[in-house]
Simulated assay, not measured.
Amino acid sequence: MWDPAAYLTYGDLRGRPFHELVARVPAERPRRVVDAGCGPGNLTASLARRWPSAQLEAFDSSPEMVEAARAAGIAAEVADVGTWTPKPDTDVLVSNAVLHWVSGHGDLLRRWARQLPSGAWLAMQVPGNFNAPSHVLTRRLAASERWRSRLASVSLRGADAVDDPEDYADLLADAGCTVDAWETTYVQPLHGDDAVLEWITGTALRPIRAALADADWDEFRGELAELLAEAYPQRADGTTWLPFRRVFVVARTP
């Protein structure tokens, strides 16, 4: 389950890559604009403002996120990004911080490139921080003797969850697209105690939270908090810097 409120705790920081991604899509009058993995809909609304004459389509696999999006005025639907197919008039397809959850999403990108109409725009962004201490320490703790049996059913994503920008560029260029690919590392200012732990609780730690009872979850969080505090020291002014790498691709179909 996704918690929309937890996800939106850092809404401004999570939204910045989305806005920088969409800014590189120069579509003028698209017929249909799709937000594939719309989350709570706060960013989807900006697509409606950017292209007011377009038919806006939004979906997410999480019923909780879709409910939040509908409450925000977005006509979102529950759907699986892995099996979703673009309609023939889809001129802009945006996938923001979604595809790293889809194993083998390179094949999905190839399929979308074939199915989108000529001259359509495909824009996607994924986190590229799976080798960062936040994720390495989480995987290491989950695999420790104390926790491995209780988390045996949990699969945590490693560095192979996403590719580098040039890999996506090759993939979509081979599909005939014109490609713009890049990466950015944001040095994000987080505030308060255990700030990095709170950041990843709403995303990367979701599978662990789902697998543990409340008491075990509190223990795991406590142990991880100590590890993260050492890896990401808090400044005297209460700020913790979190370097966060993101991978971006904007492609236009032939």
Rank of each mutant, 00 (worst) to 15 (best):
D216N: 02
D180S: 13
S149M: 08
L151Q: 08
A213L: 13
P189L: 04
A211W: 04
R221S: 13
V162A: 06
A195H: 08
A215Y: 03
R221T: 14
C177S: 01
Y168W: 05
R140W: 11
Q188H: 11
W147S: 04
R209V: 12
W217H: 14
V196K: 05
E198P: 02
L205P: 05
E145C: 12
T185I: 12
G238W: 01
R157H: 11
V187M: 07
P189K: 06
A204N: 15
E226S: 11
R209H: 14
G202S: 14
E183A: 13
P233S: 08
V187A: 10
S144W: 05
L212F: 05
E219S: 14
I200T: 10
P233Y: 05
A210W: 09
L224H: 06
R235E: 15
L190W: 03
Y232A: 10
A231M: 03
R157Y: 08
L197F: 03
P189Q: 04
G202R: 08
Q234V: 09
A143D: 09
A231K: 04
A161S: 15
R206V: 15
D214Y: 07
D170T: 12
R157P: 07
H191W: 15
R206Y: 11
L190D: 13
G222P: 05
D237V: 06
A204W: 15
R235D: 15
D180W: 00
G238N: 03
